[in-house]
């Protein structure tokens, strides 16, 4: 069972699918100055893949820590927390020139706060994970609370401006925060690589807290480290495109179906590839073929929501 079977067939297949989606994304409807278009689309492609990998890997790791396949960081309100932190910073630091900071410093400040806040909040929440539904519900309500506080603060900052609030309510895959793309891609690559290297520890943590401790893994410390990385990945994806609630769940659920294994050495790369294929493929279909505006995220979210209901009902029928 612990034999080395890399590279796994499903991983190779997913890699092929992603490559196909990427070619279509770059190629369809490309006219005029090809070099320019490829550059332009290429950086958007990189952003999409970064978001997808960050969301998928953080979801799989989070589900491993929480020992549950219905939970995702965004269902538990991570994205909403990040947006709230962004808004709080604007609200409190406007006077001292926060708005004029360069994007990197802003991102660093926001992410630093995000790591601290999520450890504090979700570290405590996850520790009482006996009563699972209560924990999930708490997370969801925290998400609602953060979102309401964000829009409250936005109204306080600029009571007449209406669009501010709206832009925070769902992801926009076609208006990526381009300043951060390279930094985000770098962070995602590093974090994912480190996580994949730790795949054996993740396998043990997936067995549950007590079993993991029995097998000599310092579960609480590991969970803290992993939670920090999850928060980092969520910061990356939220900073790039905004909140994505159910996409991670969809990607992770598909990954478990396709992978047919519990080994993180397969699960982690596969989840990233599957998520990226879905996102790039859907973006190609909607933007290039169907000519829709910005609704890809809405459709993906709806699908993810359906996946969530399916998982709950299937669990219930057992």
């Amino acid at each position: 069972m612990f034999a080395r079977a890399l590279p796994d067939r499903s991983v190779l297949l997913a890699l092929g699918a992603l490559a196909a989606a990427a070619v279509l994304y770059l190629g369809i409807g490309a006219r005029g100055d090809l070099g320019f278009i490829l550059m332009f689309r290429g950086s958007k492609l990189l952003a999409l893949i970064t978001v997808a990998v960050a969301v998928a890997v953080s979801t799989v790791v989070f589900q491993t820590i929480s020992n549950n396949r219905i939970l995702t960081p965004s269902i538990m309100g991570f994205d909403a927390l990040y947006l709230l932190i962004q808004t709080v910073l604007v609200f409190t630091l406007t006077g001292v020139g926060f708005a004029y900071l360069d994007p990197y410093s802003k991102f660093a400040l926001e992410t630093g706060l995000m790591l601290a806040a999520s450890l504090l909040l979700f570290g405590t929440l996850l520790r009482n994970s006996r009563d699972l539904s209560r924990m999930i519900l708490t997370g969801i309500i925290f998400g609602t609370l953060f979102r309401s506080m964000t829009s409250l603060l936005n109204r306080m900052i600029d009571p007449s401006e209406f669009s501010v609030i709206q832009s925070a309510s769902f992801a926009r895959f076609n208006s990526v925060n381009a300043d951060l793309t390279w930094l985000a891609a770098g962070i995602t690559l590093l974090v994912s690589g480190w996580l994949i290297r730790r795949h054996r520890t993740l396998d043990v943590i997936a067995l549950g807290r007590e079993t993991a401790i029995n097998l000599g893994v310092n579960h609480d410390r590991e969970a803290r480290h992993l939670l920090t990385l999850v928060a980092l990945l969520v910061s990356v994806s939220t900073a790039l495109v905004g909140p994505v609630v159910f996409f991670g769940l969809l990607a992770a659920a598909l990954t478990y179906q396709v992978a047919g294994t519990w080994r993180h050495v397969v699960l982690l790369p596969l989840s990233g590839l599957i998520a990226a294929t879905i996102l790039v493929g859907a973006q190609t279909l909607f933007e290039r073929v169907l000519g829709f505006q910005a609704s890809v995220s809405v459709v993906i979210e709806a699908l993810g929501g359906l996946a969530f209901l399916y998982l709950i009902l299937r669990k219930a029928s057992r």
Partner: peptide
């Protein structure tokens, strides 16, 4: 169709169910 033993699944399901309908609405409106 939800099991009676886990009452908190009900609001959980309801919130997501509402979210899906909300997403469909947003899609139409968008």
């Amino acid at each position: 169709r939800l099991p009676a033993r886990d009452p908190l699944l009900v609001p959980l399901t309801g919130i997501v169910y509402g979210g899906i309908i909300g997403a469909a609405t947003t899609f139409l409106a968008f």
